[in-house]
């Protein structure tokens, strides 16, 4: 069924209970289809992680609803969240349902550049390596929806662009819906089909841009211009790995 949504999210309002129960999110509605790469931009504290937790079904205390199509979900949290008492390979194997044929774990690890780390424990990995192990784990379930919360933070340029390319490839080939919270508008323009911006207090869906094909240079520039014009804070972000200075990556992501 082409066009059927993998994710249908309608948040009328989300507030945390606490001393000051201010609403964090209001009127965030969107649907996303298989094979899309959706970048979620917003200031730090805008509510990106909150939105992702709701999309994942981890947070049900909100006014609204979330519909997820059948299929598995892969997730990469801001912290890698590997089980420290298991090796990297065991961490991957853990999430594969019993009875289901095991995925090619060496290949998954190779895809994130961790072919030599299979039998190491998370405590022996750098943050970047652990993050990539978490990506491999998310892919091990062959997810219909892949959610990543700021996966590029503290990765160097080469690793970040490699991970971005991996995500777009996954979306194209396996029709995975990739929902990724991030900061850097240039990197988002390089990897995403769609850019959502969370903005305001409480944050709402302030923009929902379709990103034109990468070879439509003028079209991409228009979207960039519109984004930077409406959301000045996006320009303040550090230029990231997807910056136009790296045209090889920008085209590579789409190939």
């Amino acid at each position: 069924m082409p066009g059927a949504a993998v994710l249908d999210l309608r948040i009328r309002e989300k507030r945390f209970t606490g001393a000051r129960p201010l609403p964090v999110l209001r009127d965030v509605h969107f649907r996303a289809a298989p094979g899309e790469v959706v970048a979620l931009l917003g200031r730090s504290g805008a509510g990106k992680s909150t939105l992702l937790r709701i999309a994942l079904g981890l947070d049900r205390a909100f006014d609204g609803g979330v519909k997820l199509a059948h299929g598995r979900v892969g997730v990469v949290f801001q912290e890698p969240r590997l089980l420290p008492w298991l090796t990297v390979a065991e961490n991957l194997r853990l999430v594969v349902t019993e009875g289901v044929p095991e995925p090619d774990i060496p290949a998954l690890l190779a895809a994130v550049g961790l072919e030599d780390a299979a039998s190491r424990r998370p405590g022996e990995l750098s943050l970047g390596m652990a993050r990539r192990a978490a990506v491999a784990r998310a892919l091990a379930v062959d997810p219909a929806l892949l959610v990543l919360d700021e996966p590029f933070v503290s990765l160097d340029r080469r690793l970040a662009s490699g991970l971005g390319a991996l995500l777009t490839l996954r979306a194209r080939r396996q029709r995975t819906l990739v929902l990724v919270a991030m900061h850097d508008v240039e990197h988002a323009l390089a990897i995403a089909d769609r850019i959502l911006v969370l903005h305001g207090a409480p944050a709402g869906l302030a923009a929902d841009f379709a990103v034109p094909a990468r070879d439509d240079v003028a079209g991409v520039a228009r979207v960039r211009g519109a984004l930077l014009h409406r959301f000045a804070f996006l320009a303040a972000e550090e230029p990231g790995p997807g910056a136009a200075a790296d045209p090889a990556l920008a085209s590579g992501g789409r190939a």
Binding site: L56, L58, F77, V95, V141
Partner: peptide, 19 residues
């Protein structure tokens, strides 16, 4: 955080207990 993980990856009761 590990509970979240167990929910998302639908770990069976047995795996959740053991691992």
């Amino acid at each position: 955080q590990l509970d979240d993980l167990a929910i998302i990856y639908r770990l069976s009761r047995r795996r959740r207990l053991r691992r």
